[in-house]
Nucleic acid binder design. Sequence first.
DNA 1: GATGAATGAGGGTTCATTCAT
DNA 2: AATGAATGAACCCTCATTCAT
Lengths: 209, 209, 209, 209
Amino acid sequence: MNSTFNNLGDEKKDTILNAAIEEFSRHSYKSASTNRIVKNAGIGKGMLFYYFKSKKNLYLYLVDIAFNDFMENLVDFLDKSEKDLFNRIFQWNIYKIKMFIKEPQKFNFLMKISAEESPEVKNEIKRKYSLMSEKAYELLLKNIDLSNFRKDIDTEKAVNIIFWFFDSYVNKTINKLREGIHDIGHFENDTLKEFNEYLEILSRLMTDA
Amino acid sequence: MNSTFNNLGDEKKDTILNAAIEEFSRHSYKSASTNRIVKNAGIGKGMLFYYFKSKKNLYLYLVDIAFNDFMENLVDFLDKSEKDLFNRIFQWNIYKIKMFIKEPQKFNFLMKISAEESPEVKNEIKRKYSLMSEKAYELLLKNIDLSNFRKDIDTEKAVNIIFWFFDSYVNKTINKLREGIHDIGHFENDTLKEFNEYLEILSRLMTDA
Amino acid sequence: MNSTFNNLGDEKKDTILNAAIEEFSRHSYKSASTNRIVKNAGIGKGMLFYYFKSKKNLYLYLVDIAFNDFMENLVDFLDKSEKDLFNRIFQWNIYKIKMFIKEPQKFNFLMKISAEESPEVKNEIKRKYSLMSEKAYELLLKNIDLSNFRKDIDTEKAVNIIFWFFDSYVNKTINKLREGIHDIGHFENDTLKEFNEYLEILSRLMTDA
Amino acid sequence: MNSTFNNLGDEKKDTILNAAIEEFSRHSYKSASTNRIVKNAGIGKGMLFYYFKSKKNLYLYLVDIAFNDFMENLVDFLDKSEKDLFNRIFQWNIYKIKMFIKEPQKFNFLMKISAEESPEVKNEIKRKYSLMSEKAYELLLKNIDLSNFRKDIDTEKAVNIIFWFFDSYVNKTINKLREGIHDIGHFENDTLKEFNEYLEILSRLMTDA
DNA sequence: GATGAATGAGGGTTCATTCAT
DNA sequence: AATGAATGAACCCTCATTCAT
């Protein structure tokens, strides 16, 4: 927020941001502690408030970063020329799982954001979240060719079924990774296989091909 | 938990429990305030700890109540003689929505519980949650006749698709109610209609009948 | 204090008094908890204050009991016909050690009393303590024949040396028992032997015989 | 402990330490109040915990200071070239009395420490106390020539008699000062005289010279 | 005689934020 | 640009005592 912060070296900036994200990924907005953040970031107490003015401001800045980051990487990750919905959905959900594996704190922070209900930040978050999910949804459906979907089914509903089922499915998968029930090796073998089986079923049911 | 508390008059008990549930449905375990609870409950500062010994104990007691309550009402609500999965799933999800409409704080509290990550209560909650969801899942699938499901699809996966899709779908529906985007009138007309349309699609796709 | 308490059955009275002594033997007057006392005594909270009016009153009543008890048993224990100071001192210190072994809480309570500095009770305790120690000292020296003490030494000082040395010595012995460094078996063999060796040395040094 | 505290000005540091020692010299660890400490020290409520992290930490820090202080001053005070046990014991006990006169709170605090039984600090205190008394005992007996002690008496026991008697004797003396029965003037005249008389008696009894 | 529910003050501790340095 | 000392409110919890039952 404060331009001073942006003029910092990248490494130092990252250290601070990571310490903050770590804290907010573990605790609710209210119970997150700026003391712990500065301790883990290795900076003086005053600087956090010099850079970000307030805990609220810091939090909302992190939300922006997390959302933007998420969207930018998504844009890079998705194959925009892919016209098949099922392949696109595969990419989208693999993206989420890979993000969780690579940067679990960031991922957990994103999850925490949408559940945050502290009145101090709730409305602002809802607003940011709406903006982002609209963009994401648009991106996900861009250039998708739905012409091979069965004509006797409302295509929009069909798409929703596929999307929302995989939302649940991927959440469950990530929870298993999170709790150590499955490890990454399992993910790379069995989970992907199972994932494709679900895709195949839904594809067979819903398309003419 | 404490017999003292149970011997209180029902009205007073409810006042206290509601104040506590209200607080825990709005804030994480850590940031929930026993001060606010006693203020809203209209009782003296010491009494909460006389009744419940500690914040943790109170919280876990509320979790027990919420889980038991949820299961008891579910048992009453479900038509155990219903053999059709789609009708059963309809009941199950209507149950959730009606619960949200009737007792939104309790419902929100249940949601908060599963997201709670405070180390003081996390493990105990996980344990209680596992016990309950096992029971619920058993109940949901009891006496269900899946013989009319298409033989060319793995029935277990088919069931998962249906269940997990509606999980997402109902969450979204409740969020719309929560944010006032839809009102109860809308739910009773359009949402139910849409709900049935989804059921019909999935039924048509997955069964022979 | 309240006659009601005295009309209780002996067993119940003892239960209450023991619970209270236990508490005051572990904690200072201020930090002793009437809650813990009633819980351990198995009586209602109100009764403690009905019997004793206040924590202070209860405490001072216990002090009286402890002091009286200590003196009465001492009177019984000491052989008043014993004229030899060294034998008398042996008895006196054995009395203390045996009391610690038989009723450690009571003994510890007596120790705590003399160290108590809470302004609420300090003066009253000092008064009671002075009365008792005067009586005890009188009793200890009654009928003692000091005629065989060396004439070239101030007899009063000689007596003090013996008394006060054994005060220290017995305190150390009891501390070793308390900390489990020595057990009762050790006391009955080696400690008594050592005790007698000290007595023999002091006797040889200070008397003509 | 915390460097923050050590960087304070000496005057402020002393004010805080004195306020804390005062409190802990008057009350048991449990009933000592950090509220009273900060009020008497004239600092904000949070600072005590900023400096010392916790009541327990503060207490153990004070114990360290008190023990170190006691030992350092003792080393300075004792004439290490003095070979005579009686002179050494004289110095040792005079040291204690002078310390009580000069800094009664510190002295009382030292007494309270050894009687402390709160489970939160008991073990740590026992450990520190053992370390210190071992050092002190070593220092007290260093370079002492016991060759003139009577050969017909176990020298170790003889030394114990002298040491432990004076322990009691000096405790009693200090208690009289404490209770205002004797004043410092009395100490400087009559007490010292009496003290020397006891020393003379014990010296005469136990040595050949 | 006897109970234990009720109170509010005070216990130790952590907090976000400010500001002199 | 950077530090961390300082504050007081709020945190959870325990207390001695009273009093309606």
